[in-house]
């Protein structure tokens, strides 16, 4: 800052390296104009990058939806065909509908702070294993097409 203003607002570049002392007036001036700029910065950028974020994450959401849907579909048909005589199968189909709900799959613990998936989705992996067990019993050839 200019030396000509030092007598009013104090110096921000002490030669001796000691802690800079800001005068209250200097701080007030900075706060007023910084806040004004901050608010204008927020309103000026409005919905910038909103669409970009949407387009970036959409394929991942699609893939997760497709995978969850397939697991549910397999269980639903097996339940339709064998559920009356297979309590475990029927129970798993009911439970899957709860545990694979969108609000249990799109959950923050599965994503990093930028909303990228962290490794395998644990809930989906769990249900892959369960669905495989039922497939092995009734439709073994499907098992190998369900990931790990």
């Amino acid at each position: 800052m200019s030396n000509s203003l030092d007598d009013v607002w104090g110096s921000d570049s002490d030669d001796d390296g000691s802690v800079v002392q800001e005068s209250p007036d200097f701080k007030k001036l900075r706060d007023i104009h910084f806040k004004r700029g901050y608010v204008d910065g927020i309103s000026g950028s409005k919905e910038a990058k909103l669409q970009e974020g949407f387009d970036t994450a959409f394929p991942l959401g699609s893939r997760l939806g497709m995978e969850v849907g397939r697991l549910i579909g397999i269980l639903q048909f097996l339940d339709f065909k064998y559920g009356k005589d297979d309590e475990e199968l029927h129970g798993d189909f009911q439970l899957a509908q709860k545990e694979l709900k969108i609000d249990r799959v799109l959950i923050k613990s599965m994503f990093d702070s930028d909303l990228n998936l962290m490794g395998e989705h644990q809930v989906i992996s769990k249900w892959r294993r369960i669905v495989k067990v039922h497939c092995n019993k009734y439709a073994a050839s499907i098992s190998s097409t369900i990931g790990n």
């Binding site: 970009e52 974020g53 959401g61 699609s62 497709m66 549910i72 269980l75």
Partner: peptide
């Protein structure tokens, strides 16, 4: 905004493809 957009993208993608995945599983 970017993060908010990603939240929407994840949700809408999931919702739009769930039924297609389900039909795939039923057909399997």
């Amino acid at each position: 905004n970017y993060i908010e957009g990603k939240q929407y993208g994840l949700q809408v993608g999931f919702q739009r493809y769930l039924l297609l995945g389900q039909i795939t599983g039923l057909l399997d």
